[in-house]
Write a protein that binds this DNA or RNA. Structure first.
Length: 486
RNA sequence: GCCCCGUUCGUCUAGCGGCCCAGGACGCUGGCCUCUCACGCCGGAAGCACGGGUUCGAAUCCCGUACGGGGUACCA
């Protein structure tokens, strides 16, 4: 059997990291088994679905490199992949279900159902099956009142058990699973119908989804039996329910939480492989003693049975640390390529980048590669090398601390000594400053080089000072020392 | 209320009856390296929710309890 899995987001709002984790596990599962990863858009809710959200999801998936075999923009044998374009399929399924009495029309109002539950003292919420066996007269009476029915699925008696791919055996007694609506009174099909019908037509073999759908699985299993019977589904898929991604305080990471927005991680300078690696760790481990790995390694090792069923708290610190590990894995050329878009959008270099800036960047990259943990950190780290002397500014707080009277005295001595330097190389600069400031003035290294660093880079934190000065060049370095003096 | 799922260091996890007086990672912390910041390296504190079983032996299996989460719609 060929594995076919899918992810089916609703294009509402900004895509959530939980969506990414679900997509990742589905994708890894498909790739591991040499199967097919289907991407479908559940845009049945026309009110809430937006083009912006759809665009963001596509953009996100592309950035992450989670490629799909069938779906929007790539097509496939089960097109269309937008639920809004599949209405005929749902209407047809509804008719066939009704014709075989798998469903019935229900005319009850919520108030009537609640009132009956109160009278009976039942502890089970939801629908009580009142309209299951309506006589022709009763039906006619409801219609005469102008009532329009919803379509309900007739749950079978007994219990429903399945082997959950993540949790093992799960059983529900159907007396706790009321007959449920497949279609609104106005004729709009509901998620309860549309999702299984699409999975059936798309021949989905494994459904890996969030834990929140666990309790709707018995309903889907019962529906699937009917769909198989009617020849709409070839077989019932297997189900696996993935644990939640939680936010602060044991709550499901909500859309309101800034940490929930997947694309924000790109803006923050995360590597896609770093984010993905971290998200994979939420519920899965590649080995007992390792947690940094590539997606290729994940695909090779991924087994849905190994997924941990308990919810995981999203920890931004660890996400950053995992990302940092991936940063270290990049070659200098790769890191330069990755960093460039961030430098451009911050205005550090022009777009397109000039040859001179490209050369400077190539020389500067080795100085910062080991000391940035996110791509955006390159902006603060490298800015001083690229900025014109007119636009160069010293951080006010750092200036106050390092360029006081004592600091300026240090800078003055450095300037005097360096002005007479024959060879402008990091080694020569270091030798000169060491002799002048540390040995002659008797300063501790940090007190000696701190003021010079702030004068040169504008910040207390910078790439290595002497190399930086070499790259900046003699004229600009001396000019910055001069301007620091007042 | 009822149904379902879950419970190993602060956090993410390894563990699927003896290899565990529980291993790794992040974070925290002591130190080394050092021109700042990082990186890197060495060390430390920190956990099997509780109670009963089963077994020669339980973090691992079973049953309760507690706690957390989800569901209970003409939402998805």
């Amino acid at each position: 059997m060929t594995v076919r899995v899918r992810m089916a987001p609703s294009p509402t709002g900004s895509p959530h990291v939980g969506l990414v984790r679900t997509a990742l596990f589905n994708w890894a599962f498909a790739r591991h088994h040499g199967g097919t990863f289907v991407f479908r858009i559940e845009d049945t809710d026309r009110e809430r679905s937006t083009q912006e959200s759809y665009d963001a999801i596509i953009d996100l998936m592309r950035w992450l490199g989670l490629d799909w075999d069938e779906g929007p923009e790539v097509g496939g044998p089960h097109a269309p992949y937008f639920q809004s374009e599949r209405g005929d399929l749902y209407r047809d399924a509804l008719e066939r279900l009704a014709a075989s009495s798998y469903t019935y029309d229900c005319f009850c109002t919520n108030e009537e159902v609640d009132a009956r539950r109160k009278d009976s003292g039942s502890k089970v919420m939801g629908y009580d099956g009142f309209c299951r066996e309506l006589s022709a007269e009763q039906r006619a009476a409801f219609e005469a009142e102008g009532r329009k029915p919803v379509v309900r699925f007739r749950m079978p008696d007994g219990s429903i058990t399945w082997h959950d791919l993540v949790r093992g055996e799960v059983t529900f007694e159907t007396r706790f699973v009321p007959d449920y609506a497949l279609c609104r009174a106005n004729g709009d099909p509901l998620y309860t119908l549309v999702n299984p019908v699409d999975d059936a037509y798309m021949e989905i073999t494994h459904v890996l989804r969030g834990e929140d759908l666990l309790s709707s699985t018995p309903r889907q299993l019962a529906l699937y039996d009917a769909l198989v019977e009617l020849g709409i589904a070839k077989q019932t898929p297997e189900f696996g329910h993935l644990p939640y991604v939680m936010g602060e305080g044991n709550k499901k990471l909500s859309k309101r939480d800034p940490e929930a927005h997947a694309l924000a991680y790109r803006e923050q300078g995360f590597l896609p492989e770093g984010l993905l690696n971290y998200l994979a760790l939420l519920g899965w481990a590649i080995a007992a003693d390792r947690d940094v790995f590539s997606m290729e390694e994940m695909v090779a090792a991924f087994d849905i049975a190994d997924v941990n069923p308990n919810p995981a708290r999203f920890d931004i610190k660890k996400a950053e640390a995992i990302n940092a590990s991936h940063m270290r894995l990049l070659s200098l050329d790769e890191m330069t390529d990755r960093v460039l878009p961030y430098l451009k959008s911050a205005g550090v270099v022009s777009d397109p980048v000039t040859d001179a800036d490209a050369r400077l960047l190539e020389l500067a990259m080795p100085l910062v590669a080991e000391r940035i943990n996110k791509l955006t950190e390159s902006v603060d780290m490298l800015g001083f090398l690229f900025v014109s002397e007119d636009d160069f500014v010293v951080d006010p707080a750092d200036a106050e601390k390092f360029l006081d009277d004592d600091g300026r005295a240090v800078v003055r001595r450095a300037l005097e000594r360096l002005s007479g330097l024959d060879e402008w190389s990091s080694a020569a600069i270091q030798e000169a400053l060491q002799a002048e400031l540390v040995e002659a003035m008797g300063l501790k290294p940090r007190n000696a080089f701190g003021p010079v660093r702030v004068a040169i880079s504008g910040r207390r934190v910078s790439p290595p000072l002497f190399e930086s000065m070499e790259l900046l060049g003699r004229d600009r370095s001396l000019a910055r020392l001069q301007s620091a003096l007042g």
